[in-house]
């Protein structure tokens, strides 16, 4: 009496399509969206090395390593937010506030190095939590939410210092900047560690995957049972924490708490992320791209300085690079879309 459907397909273990290893590498390279940035980095690096003997020298590479740590960590942090479809404009000001605060805790309040760094990072995380609450609970657009902090955090940095740098930072604090690991400055090592952690999180944990899903289609993610608000919250905390970390590194590098640092760095960080293929509409982009986007900006900046190009022209060049990156990204995604349409 029960005519149960019996034609259930036998579940065989799935076999991912295998291709010859050589062809697979080529097709995979061609399909890697970050290939353009990586190639540009290599080409420019070789060009600058050829144009100037100093460029590839150890001391210049170390300077680039410091710069890379600053912009790279910020770019990684803001990428989390952009992946959810948001934006974080507060980075530069949070860098200034945390730079000043860590110096004040260490020099003026007399806390040892590690507690001052710890407290500073805690404050940064708190700023991220506030951003997350504004965006998820109050529904304030990310642009506006972080614009408030852009203004307020800068003001706080100036208020703490009354506009003057805080000096007297302890030696153990500045050591953070002075040490080298096999010639590689500690901040650069920290950046590399951040990259690895970010990569593992975004590509190899389920929470990271959910972050992409939230940015790709928030309603679909929600209805698929993902706690979208938690993921968004996490992104803002990561972003602010990264800014706090950079603030600490800056104070260590300058050995003073300087309230004027970080002006406009949020834009550099966003530019690095976008050049690296993080889609401003959310849900797409990878850590490799962000890392190389940051490297590209640092290479261009340093190269132009070494070639004695006027700072004004440097900015024009940076703008052009950004324009090229955005245009190729558009063309690429349109081609891909076209190919998809043709294939169906």
């Amino acid at each position: 009496m029960t005519a149960a459907p019996t034609e259930t397909p036998a579940v065989t273990p799935p076999e991912p399509a295998q291709e010859p290893a050589g062809r697979r590498l080529v097709t995979r390279l061609a399909a890697t969206p970050e290939i353009g940035v990586i190639a540009t980095v290599i080409v420019l690096f070789l060009a600058f090395s050829a144009a100037s003997d100093n460029f590839a020298g150890v001391s210049n590479l170390q300077t680039m390593g410091f710069d890379l740590a600053q912009y790279g960590i910020l770019a990684l942090g803001v990428s989390f937010v952009i992946l959810t479809g948001g934006i974080d404009l507060s980075l530069g000001s949070v860098v200034a506030l945390t730079a000043v605060l860590s110096a004040w805790l260490n020099a003026s309040a007399g806390l040892p190095t590690l507690p001052s760094i710890g407290l500073t990072l805690l404050l940064a995380a708190a700023i991220g939590v506030v951003h997350g609450l504004f965006v998820t609970r109050l529904g304030v657009p990310p642009f506006v939410t972080t614009l408030i902090t852009l203004v307020a955090a800068r003001g706080a940095a100036l208020a703490i210092t009354k506009g003057f740098p805080i000096d007297g930072v302890s030696e153990s604090f500045t050591d953070l900047n002075a040490y080298r690991l096999l010639l590689v400055p500690v901040p650069t090592v920290i950046f590399i560690v951040c990259c690895v952690v970010a990569w593992v999180f975004l590509e190899r944990t389920y929470a990271g995957r959910q972050l992409y899903a939230v940015g790709g289609n928030r309603e679909a993610a929600r209805l698929a049972g993902i706690r979208t608000e938690r993921r968004i919250m996490l992104a803002y905390v990561v972003s602010a924490l990264c800014a706090g970390l950079v603030g600490v590194l800056i104070t260590s590098r300058l050995s003073v708490g300087q309230p004027g640092v970080g002006q406009g760095w949020e834009l550099t960080a966003i530019a690095a992320a976008v050049i690296g293929g993080i889609s401003l509409s959310g849900g797409a982009g990878r850590v490799v791209g962000v890392a190389f986007g940051a490297i590209l900006l640092v290479v261009i900046n340093t190269g132009l300085v070494i070639l004695h190009v006027s700072p004004y022209y440097q900015q024009i060049v940076l703008g052009l690079v950004l324009a090229v990156a955005v245009t190729t990204d558009r063309i690429r995604s349109r081609r891909l879309a076209g190919a998809r349409k043709a294939s169906t």
């Binding site: 289609n217 679909a220 849900g283």
Partner: peptide
């Protein structure tokens, strides 16, 4: 609009 991540593969 409510279910799929259109640009993501079937797997995801």
């Amino acid at each position: 609009h409510q279910a799929l991540l259109l640009d993501d593969p079937v797997r995801r």
